[in-house]
Amino acid sequence: MKCRKENQDHKMKNTDEYEQKHTKYQFQQNAKRMKTIHIEPEKIFDCTLATRTPKQIAFSGVYAGDLLSDVMGHAREGNIWVTMQTHKNVAAIAGLKDIRAVIIVGNNQPDADMLSQCECENISVFTTGLRTYEVCGMLYEYEKKSHEA
């Protein structure tokens, strides 16, 4: 009987330790993921701020996507959103997901009503001639370096 109890205690202790360790690990992971970085995109790559909003933005992570249904489902708060869509719904979805910056790639020019709505919601819109792959590559490098620093 005693033996069994000890065993249980031992088991519990182990579980506690495991949980503590696991929680700590998760916390570190989350902190890493949630860590907000400041960026001024115009200084990092060839792009132009199209809205009257801050040049410098705080972000954590990037989401790239042109299917707005997908972005609505999967982008996270604080992400930079890289897309070629210029419809006004971009502004609505960025607002909904608490995205502070949208980068429009491939020389696509955003609609005037999209820009005005982004300004209302204080979302910075950048336009660039670069493509999604290049922009994401540079943002990835920037974020990685900032985490290492």
Partner: peptide
């Protein structure tokens, strides 16, 4: 509209 724009643009 659902897949590309997420929802019906109100305008």
């Amino acid at each position: 509209i659902s897949s590309q724009l997420g929802f019906m643009p109100p305008d």
